[in-house]
Design a binder for these strands. Sequence first.
DNA 1: CATAGATATGAATTGCCATTCATATTGATG
DNA 2: CATCAATATGAATGGCAATTCATATCTATG
Lengths: 217, 217
Amino acid sequence: MAYRRTDQVSARLAQTRRQILNSAREIISELGFSGAQMSDVAQRSGVATGTLYRYFANKEELCRQVFREVSTREMNMLATIASSDAPPEERLAKVLRTFAGRAIQGRRLAYALLAEPVDVGLAEERSRFRRTHAEIFAGILEEGVASGAFRLCDVRLSAACMAGAIPTVLIGSLAPDAEALETDAERIVDEIVAFCFSGVSHPDTRTFQTREERAAS
Amino acid sequence: MAYRRTDQVSARLAQTRRQILNSAREIISELGFSGAQMSDVAQRSGVATGTLYRYFANKEELCRQVFREVSTREMNMLATIASSDAPPEERLAKVLRTFAGRAIQGRRLAYALLAEPVDVGLAEERSRFRRTHAEIFAGILEEGVASGAFRLCDVRLSAACMAGAIPTVLIGSLAPDAEALETDAERIVDEIVAFCFSGVSHPDTRTFQTREERAAS
DNA sequence: CATAGATATGAATTGCCATTCATATTGATG
DNA sequence: CATCAATATGAATGGCAATTCATATCTATG
């Protein structure tokens, strides 16, 4: 018997793995998944390119792992809020606010997670991520509809609307420019939340009422 | 003088060009932009691969051209509705309905236009496309806000919410499965329109409170 | 300290498609 | 029909970054 892995070695291996994940996360936060080249990740981690492949089967696996770590944190944050015992309206507002706020804060990373072109493997992770969002929203909506706090609506569909609206407003070509997002962040978040909120609130005016009808009433 | 392009030749060239664009559009509608390989486009067009490059500088140019043709048709459709002289509520409803309806109908193509991972050149076209959508929505909202038909809101932001919500609900991981989209299309469109609509309608019950209000109470 | 297995290295290889280009074909003109 | 220019061809080329692998360096153990 000539060799057996020591605790010390295991620890070093674990540390290297962590280091690689951290470097990858950093680079991905700056350049996105496609901009993160294996050789760069290796360099920043202080290891050789080949070494990466001793820790992760391939780039996709590494990226998936990073995606999971980052997205899990976000989802937990929302899930925690969602499971509090505040009334549904409050929880919904807070969840939406948090989602939007964090997207503004960590815009580049949010872009990578939500909008950057990625290929199948990562797209799968992204789907999971987005579905979880929608489910969190939907859960609150469901309770709210049951309790009468929200109007009767297709909760999954409404949740998807919210999950679609928020990133679109904050990330990509329809987003305000970076400066506005900084200075105006609060107002923007308020508006988004208001928009989403009214989508599930009890209506008073019928949807297709004309001006005259409204004037007459 | 030994050669000069004849009308007949020009016509044939134009026809080949058209044929290439059509084949490309077909393949893109089935497999998306990334799935459309130049050699396949050539084959379906009945020309050699190299011939494509006599008509388009490169794949990106070809794809852009296809994108423009397809998206222009869609945008014109919406623009026409938007510029009718019906009241803003009616125009908004019709525009949203058309957008959603066509996305359901031509799902694969809609995916390519709105959601498929693409690289910079096409992303530019997509941005133009999405911005135009949002502008069409915003234009109607602006009038509606001015006339009092809609509540006071950030029209660009509300427009972005709509432009984000609709594709998310209908395309990708948060969309209902294909069968539901077929059988339930009308109800789904109705729900989406209702959601978007209430985002800009006058509220009666204010389930949502702004920060200031919350602070004040 | 000799040995063997584990781990790390990074230059070379690979795979994938878009793109090119030497060659062939087609069309116009005198 | 001879000539030249335009047009078409498709096998070969090229570029790029992920991945591999022969080699070197470590680490534990008797």
